[in-house]
């Protein structure tokens, strides 16, 4: 039996990692709130750094959103993977938008960097996180690639500020390159959304198992020797 979107809504809602999302989103809210109320007016902390940190923390939790422990069980049911993934995204997006609005509003308006541009950055960061999760699911057999994706995402995020000036993404509003950087952010967002759309389907034909992944070998601390953990 193929489930409709409405019938799948509640089960999908229950499988979403709400606690992780709350932790990641809570970090940004907590920082913004603490700074606002504890120090009066941010005590010299650049609001842009705060917003970027909040977006990064939240995006890290989004890398876990497409994890599906039941993946191998449900890959054969008629309800398509694209529908389940789509439902997850539909459920997460409004929550994300609400959370981002709250974080932005916590920053005093006099210190707030250009909201539209920073929102573009945050949207691109979130889209890249989701696309990375979808890509990992599409390319591997792993039901829960979240931790690996999060590690790779974090490493990328730490290295991005080191990009040469020509491709810089993290610039300051006073910088001449602010406009150009946000054009690049827009391209990142578009690229991530396209990748996400392309990776929605369950891979029908499995690629050949890589060498070394033989059934029956066990690792002392669980898992398969070469499986992504």
């Amino acid at each position: 039996m193929r489930l409709t979107a409405r019938e799948s809504l509640v089960p999908v809602l229950r499988t979403l990692p709400w606690r992780a999302l709350a932790a990641g989103g809570g970090l940004g809210l907590l920082l913004a709130g603490l700074l606002r109320w504890a120090t009066g007016e941010f005590g010299g902390w650049p609001a842009l750094t705060l917003l970027r940190t909040a977006a990064l923390a939240y995006a890290l939790t989004l890398t876990f959103v497409l994890d599906d422990p039941a993946r191998h069980t449900v890959s054969t049911v008629p309800t398509r993977r694209a529908l389940r993934t789509g439902l997850r995204l539909v459920l997460v997006t409004p929550a994300t938008a609400l959370w981002w609005m709250a974080v932005v509003l916590l920053v005093p308006s006099s210190l707030r960097p250009p909201v539209a541009d920073v929102t573009l950055e945050a949207a691109a960061a979130c889209a890249v996180a989701l696309a990375a999760g979808a890509l990992a699911t599409r390319l591997t057999d792993e039901p829960r690639p979240g931790p690996s994706v999060a590690a790779a995402y974090l490493l990328t995020a730490v290295l991005t500020p080191l990009l040469p000036h020509r491709w810089a993404l993290f610039v300051w509003p006073a910088d001449k390159g602010w406009e150009a950087a946000h054009e690049r952010w827009a391209w990142v967002l578009v690229g991530a959304l396209v990748a996400l759309a392309l990776c929605m389907r369950e891979p029908i034909r499995r690629r050949r198992a890589p060498i070394g992944r033989r059934p029956g070998t066990f690792a002392p601390s669980g898992g398969t020797p070469s499986g992504g953990v």
Binding site: A23, G24, W45, T49, L50, T53, T61, G146, L154
Partner: peptide, 20 residues
């Protein structure tokens, strides 16, 4: 006991090292 704890701690440390 959560794999999210380490990345979030790193983000917090990064924020502290950049912001303060």
């Amino acid at each position: 006991a959560s794999v999210l704890a380490a990345p979030l701690t790193i983000v917090l440390l990064l924020f502290l090292s950049f912001g303060v």
